[in-house]
Amino acid sequence: MSELVIQLARAGFLALLWLFVLAALRVVRSDLHSASGLRAPGIGVSVPGAGKNKKTPSKQPKSKTKSPRQLVVTHGALAGTRISLDGMPISLGRADDSTLVLDDDYASTRHARLALRGTDWYVEDLGSTNGTYLDRTKVTGSTKVPLGVPIRIGKTVIELRS
C-alpha cells in the first residue's frame, strides 16, 4: 500500500469522524425549534385557532398582538420547563395525566386549567384547595391570561410567552 493512499485514508477518516459530528449537530439543530415534545397533534377536539397557532407567527403576522406560543414555568420545582401551546387545553395539577404534573404540596390533584377561547387563553380554577392566583388576584371563574403575567399555583409560577 503506497504511502500516499495511507496518508489520504488517515485524513479521510478524521474527516469522516467530524462529518458524523456535524451530521449529529444538524439533527440537534432541526430539533431546537420544538420547545419540548408537548405539541399535541390536532386530533379530536377542534379548537378554533388551533391551526393558526401551530405555525410560527413570523409566517403570519396578521394578529397585531403576539399570541402566546409557549407556557414557561418560571419558579418552583419544574422551573425551566416549557410547553408549546397549540390550542389544546392545558391541565395543571398533581394528577399523572395532567399536561404539567405539579409536584407541589400546595397543588390539588386537578388544580387548574388553561384553555384557548378565540385568540385568548383563559385560566380556570378547578376547585383547588389553595387557589390559583393570576398575578396577585385569586382566580374565580374563567379569567383571561395576558402575556407574561404570572400564574401562581402553590410554589409554582408559570406564565405565557410568545
Binding site: F13, L16, F20, V27, S30, H33, S34, R39, P41, K54
Partner: peptide, 29 residues
C-alpha cells in the same frame, strides 16, 4: 402525526437509522 412536518415533534426514527448506518460506515472504515 398529522403531516405538519416542521411544527409537530417528529420522532425522527429514520434519522436515527441513517445515523446508525453512518456510524457503521465509520466503524467499518
Amino acid at each position: 402525526p398529522s403531516g405538519d412536518s416542521e411544527a409537530t415533534p417528529r420522532a425522527r426514527r429514520s434519522n436515527e437509522l441513517i445515523m446508525l448506518v453512518f456510524a457503521t460506515v465509520i466503524v467499518t472504515a
